[in-house]
Amino acid sequence: MPARSRKPPYRFLLVVSLILALLHLYVGLRLLPDMPVAAWGKGLGVAWLALSWVLLPTTILSRFVKRQSLADALGWAGSLMMGVFSTLLVLTVLRDVFLGLGALVLPGAVESRSAVWSAAAVPLLTVLISLLGFFNARRRARVVDVDIPLPGLPAALQGFTIAQISDIHVGPTIKHDYLDAIVDAVNDLQADLVAVTGDVVDGSVEHLAPHTAPLARLSARHGTYFVTGNHEYYSGEAAWSEEFQRLGLNVLKNRHVVLEHDGASLVLAGVTDYSAHQFVPEERSDPAAALAGAPTDAGTRVLLAHQPRSAPAAAAAGFDLQLSGHTHGGQFWPWNHFVRLQQPYTAGLHRLGDLWVYTSRGTGYWGPPKRFGAPSEITRLRLVAV
């Protein structure tokens, strides 16, 4: 994330504003003429679209505002509007597809009636989806239980539990109390270890350290372990890794630790984010290096890797289980259908050769405070023998 002392990227903002203007114009021209409301109602629609166009870029501008309270207010305004307009735009496009197909098979009178009711339905559905999405995003993530079947798992590791949290994105709209509730829920699980798989923050240590302080309370028999996500690199990764280490999180950068559990050993490794080398060349993500020197007779080998894209290298290195995040499960419809264009897995448990890959939907959210069709989660993973 750029430092707030730098000047805003005015040329970029201009391009973004022009694109947003065209998108808002499209929505207005396609919906307002068919809306079954009086002229003053359509005028309110024009005013709302104008306000949306003005507020959306504030998510970018907020990064360059020095006064934290104002930066957060701008971040809230832009993020809320981003979520609402995103759904409005998608539903407007789907309405046009519906009307286009209908025009091929329906007579003009029916087509006209369809245009009227569908124009009214789009904003109503937008409001409903946005309200439900806001509630789902702002509530504390629910606990999801997942069993990981591992051949040859030692009896001592049967039932070993890992509590995974990921993609919290402490920043303009997620603060201390939100994270505090997550930590309480994780500690209630009494897991054997806690895994934090990246993207904890969206902002600098200077501005967010008071809000990440609850992480110091995370408690587990074998401790808490953290790997970097891409947003740590946007936000000053070196400073954040130092801060997380100060809070008691064990930062794993292409290295492993051996945990002794009731007479059996478990290798826990972590890699830097898949894109880390783009920010710090010497921190290229390397699952093989993370496992180098690990005991060959370990009961199981677990890798923490922010992005699911690390899976092929993890499988080749000989890991049994990879825990990832990054995708948010798509966060809200319809973007959950597009995650596979960039990542091999969207959410849940998958198999790649001998490797199990679990991808968390995330414990917070990024950008719009909105989750629809992709609920947040605190994951309790249990190792079981097969």
Rank of each mutant, 00 (worst) to 15 (best):
G299I: 03
L193N: 06
L249R: 02
G75A: 10
T224I: 10
D180I: 00
V194M: 08
D34K: 06
S360W: 03
N254C: 06
D262V: 09
E242Q: 14
V201A: 01
W40H: 13
V258I: 12
F338S: 14
G299Q: 01
R255S: 10
G171F: 06
L349A: 12
G248V: 03
V146R: 06
G329C: 08
A239G: 10
R301K: 15
V170T: 09
Q322Y: 05
G364H: 04
L56H: 15
F372Y: 13
P369H: 11
S69Y: 03
A264N: 05
R11P: 05
L383W: 02
E377W: 04
L104W: 14
G348P: 04
L14N: 10
H350Y: 10
A38H: 13
G364A: 08
G41T: 12
A220P: 02
A185P: 07
S86P: 08
A119H: 08
F12I: 07
L51Y: 13
V97D: 09
R139K: 15
V201F: 00
A21W: 14
H211K: 06
A374H: 03
G270M: 05
M82Y: 11
Y274L: 07
D177L: 13
W53I: 08
G198D: 00
P281C: 05
G236R: 05
L91I: 11
F226K: 09
N254Q: 07
D199C: 09
G133R: 02
W333G: 02
I148Y: 14
W240Q: 07
M1T: 11
L89T: 12
L303Q: 07
S62H: 13
